[in-house]
Amino acid sequence: MSLAVDVVRRVGDFELRARFTTGDGIAVLFGPSGAGKTLTIRLLAGLDRPDRGRIELDGEPLVDTDAGLWVPAQDRRVGIVFQDALLLPHRTVIDNVALAVREPGDRRQVALRWLEEVGADDLSERRPAQLSGGQAQRVALARALAGGPRVVLLDEPFNALDLPVRRRMRTLLMTLVDRWRVPTVFVTHDPEEARELGDRIVPARDGLVGAV
């Protein structure tokens, strides 16, 4: 897998310039708050449009402003996890994950497999309100993976968790990325997290992300 990003995006007074490439494993976007990390994730996911530039996944352009090309979020096949798990409160855990399954067939079966993968299969019939923060993020991770993503984006997903839970979640993430070879972009401002997780570090500061 290769991800190549070279974009400019202005929002009010803030200007983001992001330029980096990454391959398999975990790329960590590391830097303080307000550096443009989250905006970069939104551009990658297709939730925001760059003013100019290009994003390529495996040589296929997702955005190319010169060519007027734009692949909407629905068609990008990415998985995403935010700081809040954002599980739908009206659906059970397994139904939350099943909603993300793209392959035809028994979606709940696929969902259960991913819940097993993240160690949350015993929670499958619970409602999100009955989960702890760590459990909810496990389910969010299963949901992000259940769609068979070409890349997984994680925006400070473990920030709200206690330190021991954070450590366990990091280990889980590394195991999953290793086993499933899912290319991952991970946002954090925590140096310990960046060091432990990052196969490569992409620095972010004052709107400059990567080697700009």
Binding site: A45, G46, L47, P72, A73, Q74, D75, R76, R77, V78, G79, I80, F82, D84, L86, L88, L99, A100, R102, R143, G147
Partner: peptide
């Protein structure tokens, strides 16, 4: 953001 997650899910 719930809707954005839905968008990304396809």
């Amino acid at each position: 953001r719930f809707e954005e997650v839905g968008e990304v899910m396809g």
